[in-house]
């Protein structure tokens, strides 16, 4: 565990908590893409099946369980509890255009053709693009509440910090994973436009 990895995980956790709190406190999920949230639930489910097969540490298991629970909790709040506030008219990104290519790509480009490995690869590919419905929604409505912006900033920072973690691990442990690195870079690049707006708006005010 290095500092970049830890900061990345904290940033990821923060993003999820910000989202849950926003929905809970305002009793509304307006401006949040349910489709992105469903994709994230698929991502965590596919990746964290290893909870059943390998134990790394308490930290590792607890974080995985928290991500899973928070993700399904968010879906429950959006699609059941505060369903009336869900802005489905603006949440129209066709997720099959993301899921199908990711399925295909994970079958073609993976480290090992085994079920768990393919699911892991699929989750990495899908995670890299899972935010697109949310970014599409923000661009469609032309604005995001500041709390939604904080959520996006924290979520985007997480993968950017993981890239620094991978650079560190490459030098410190001579270890790298091409699939994770390429997908992580794609994921971070997708946030760049948003990062730019977030920082400039943050500095220069509304």
């Amino acid at each position: 565990m290095n500092v970049f990895r830890l900061l990345g995980d904290i940033s990821h956790l923060l993003a999820i908590i910000i989202l849950l709190l926003k929905i809970w406190k305002t009793r509304s999920c307006a401006g949040i893409s349910g489709r992105s949230q469903v994709l994230f639930a698929v991502v965590y489910t596919a990746r964290y099946l290893d909870l059943f097969t390998s134990y790394i540490s308490a930290y590792n298991s607890i974080m995985k369980l928290v991500f899973l629970a928070a993700s399904y909790g968010t879906i429950y709040l959006m699609f059941i509890k505060f369903k009336a506030s869900y802005d489905h008219n603006h949440d129209t990104f066709r997720i099959e255009f993301l899921i199908l290519p990711c399925v295909l790509l994970s079958l073609l480009i993976n480290h090992e053709f085994s079920p768990l490995e393919i699911l892991w690869t699929f989750s990495i590919y899908l995670e890299s693009v899972a935010i697109l419905p949310q970014l599409f929604m923000v661009s469609k409505t032309g604005e995001a509440e500041s709390i939604t912006s904080h959520y996006l900033f924290a979520l985007g920072s997480y993968r950017a910090l993981y890239i620094l973690n991978w650079i560190y691990r490459y030098y410190a442990e001579s270890h790298y994973d091409v699939i994770a690195i390429v997908a992580g870079i794609v994921q971070t690049v997708l946030y760049c436009d948003f990062f730019y707006l977030y920082i400039t708006k943050g500095i220069y005010g509304q």
Binding site: R5, D9, H12, D50, S54, I56, N60, M63, K64, F67, H111, E117, W120, Y162, N165, H175, D177, A180
Partner: peptide
């Protein structure tokens, strides 16, 4: 090595 990376990172 591959194994530990897989399951360790979130």
């Amino acid at each position: 090595i591959l194994e530990s990376f897989r399951h360790d990172e979130l």
